[in-house]
Design a protein around this nucleic acid. Structure first.
Lengths: 216, 216
DNA sequence: GTCTATATGTGGATAGAC
DNA sequence: GTCTATCCACATATAGAC
């Protein structure tokens, strides 16, 4: 049925439709989960936003939880990638500004992803228990060690690395998660690129200055 | 009916039960709204947590939206109070550490309130449109002016005040909103007071240092 | 004021025609 | 693969006995 010989060319390789629909659904689900969280999102809303019947969502993703995990894991992948690039051998004056810029850029380009993650944490993080329990603490420690190394090498002042990391996360993600409030405060309909640029520049100046990291 | 003469003393002034029950319901609602947001919270869950029949919730608060607004307005009141105390006449070296300590203390004492607010913002802030549209921008500007004054008076480096405010908010609220992640990173079952103290001290050092504010 | 029972809608999920 | 029709649990909200 799928490979009938002599059928007219459809220009759609096998699975093409599936790929298209899955993307439609995942994008729609990300939007809905970002605004209403897992419990607050209905499959009907996802279906309406994706422009497909509700039953199709269940066809592609077994159930609501499966769909949610699919969205979440996309985000987690995206998340950890950046932070792993920092190394103790680097010069913080060079890589920290880049890290801040990257995180701010994430807030600009993937605000929905950031919000789904934030929603999940606020909801108690029950769907991330594996992610958090396994070796998360070890991973975090190894990341904190990068800063400890910089401190030992006299590249920055003795600042508590864990709280510095929380500061980096909290201040950068704020521009995605609290965008509505930032918009209201600045009197803007939408956050344009210059806001993110100024944010990155200001955060870099304060944090590097506060850590006693001198840039050339 | 309410003031029958000769009724036996109940030791309960009129409205005492009402007051008690309203508090029970509001506390329960705050917990639920913090975890599941407006859409994701059911009146049954609130009732169960409050230990009252569902119909009673509807008796005290007309409907779900009324209950939600009651919870939200409590929080907003709590929120704005601190920030309004900063003045251009003050010495930032004195009042900024106090502001940071107060915000961190809020995250410790009222994490649920912080989360309800965060949830509402993530959900699009549709129930705060009045709060945000009215004179929020003006209020924010007047607050930013405090920092501008400090800059003009040479009390701190020329840092963009708006983004400095976002940094203060984002970094302090992080300890309430992302407590689960902070716990996982630090390997703690619960965040104890020393974590909040170290957080306040570290944030103060970085932010004041980064703004070029010297403390005695 | 309190609470059981219920009306009416929407939730997730699936059967089965096409 | 697609989509209508439908099942049943649970949602908000209220009626009405106590």
């Amino acid at each position: 049925m799928q490979f009938e010989v002599g059928a007219h060319r459809t220009d759609r390789p096998a699975g093409r439709i599936r790929q298209q629909n899955e993307k439609l659904i995942l994008d729609a689900a990300e939007q809905e989960f970002a605004r209403h969280g897992f419990k607050g999102t209905s499959m009907q809303q996802v279906a309406d936003r994706a422009g497909l019947p509700k039953a199709n969502i269940h066809y592609y993703f077994n159930n609501k939880l499966g769909l949610y995990y699919a969205v979440l894991s996309n985000i987690i992948e995206l998340w950890d990638s950046t932070f792993n690039e920092l190394s103790g051998d680097d010069d913080p004056a060079e890589v920290l500004p880049r890290y801040i810029a990257t995180k701010i850029d994430f807030s600009r380009r993937y605000p929905q992803a950031s919000r789904v993650f934030a929603m999940e944490i606020l909801s108690g993080g029950t769907h991330l228990s594996e992610y958090f329990q396994q070796d998360y603490r070890e991973w975090f420690r190894s990341r904190a060690a990068v800063f400890e190394r910089w401190i030992a090498d006299g590249k920055m002042k003795p600042i508590d690395p864990a709280h510095l990391i929380f500061l980096l996360w909290g201040s950068t993600q704020h521009y995605a998660d609290f965008a509505i409030q930032v918009q209201a405060a600045l009197g803007k309909e939408e956050l344009e690129e210059d806001v993110f640029e100024t944010a990155a520049r200001t955060l870099t100046e304060i944090i590097l200055g506060g850590c006693g990291i001198r840039r050339d």
